[in-house]
């Protein structure tokens, strides 16, 4: 997947993270080449969110290595961490828009606060980003609470792309949306990532979404990557866990703790 000599955009090695006695990540190894889109799939509680939060720097792993553009990011000072974070854009599961700010200021937040763009120019850039994700600019001065779930996701996507990041993260982008709106959001994600030439990492348990968004898929189970390959091969992975997961079967090697 990575051409010889090219450092992957994101490289994760031997990542471990535990909360008390609960070992969530048990040695994750993952490479994401520049310009590619990877979907990490897996059931609830398998460590997807912990993985993405560790890469972004929201959680401190117990051990392992996370390289961004070949640079080790674990143990960076806050200032150095901020420099690395400027490469990132993220769409959160619940959009995570700031309630206290109007929609346009949410979208322009990164431009104003971290890039020092003047408010008037930032507003123009925000309206442009809103156009890109199909949001009517008439809602620019509305509060996020006045928007529907789908519109909030679009606004969150506009905020993520407004700073033109090199790497984009998507946390369950279709959760809570109807299938049509989910498909729209996926299309916007693919379009935005292509236009920016960004590298994308998505975590999801929605297989339809993973197939639409990703070039490659990695499956995580019990804190380890159990399969990693092109999205086109996922139906013939030869991995029983992947087969069980993508077909939604209750019987198979993946054991769920379900009280009946």
């Amino acid at each position: 997947m990575t051409a010889p000599g090219d450092a992957p955009k994101i490289s994760v090695r031997g990542l471990h993270k535990a909360f008390g006695t609960n070992e969530v990540l048990r040695g994750i190894d993952l490479d994401l080449p520049a310009g590619q889109s990877l979907a990490v799939i897996g059931g609830s509680g398998t460590g997807k969110s912990v993985l993405i939060k560790s890469i972004i720097g929201l959680l401190e792993p117990d051990s392992g290595s996370i390289l961004i553009d070949g640079e080790e990011t674990l143990g960076l000072s806050p200032g150095e961490r901020e420099r690395v974070t400027r490469k990132f854009g993220m769409l959160f599961q619940g959009a995570a828009l700031f309630d206290s700010l109007p929609v346009w200021e949410n979208v322009a937040f990164g431009l104003i606060q971290s890039q020092g763009v003047r408010r008037r120019d930032a507003r123009e850039a925000a309206l442009e980003a809103m156009n890109m994700v199909g949001l009517d600019t008439d809602i620019a001065d509305r509060s996020p609470a006045e928007l529907s779930g789908g519109m909030q996701k679009r606004a969150g996507l506009a905020r993520a792309i407004a700073t033109k990041p090199e790497i984009m993260f998507f946390d369950e982008p279709t959760t809570g949306l109807d299938p049509i709106m989910g498909s729209v959001i996926d299309s916007l994600i693919v379009k935005s990532v292509r236009e920016l030439g960004a590298t994308a990492l998505t975590i999801t348990h929605d297989m339809a979404s993973a197939r639409r968004i990703a070039d490659n898929v990695a499956m995580i189970y019990q804190g380890r990557i159990v399969w990693h390959g092109p999205v086109a091969e996922i139906d013939h992975s030869g991995n029983d866990m992947v087969d069980q997961f993508i077909n939604g079967r209750s019987i198979g090697p993946i054991q769920l703790q379900v009280a009946v």
């Binding site: 972004i56 720097g57 993220m90 959160f92 990164g110």
Partner: peptide, 8 residues
């Protein structure tokens, strides 16, 4: 978390 990802 969103603040942090926006380098704030």
């Amino acid at each position: 978390d969103a603040l942090t990802t926006l380098s704030t």
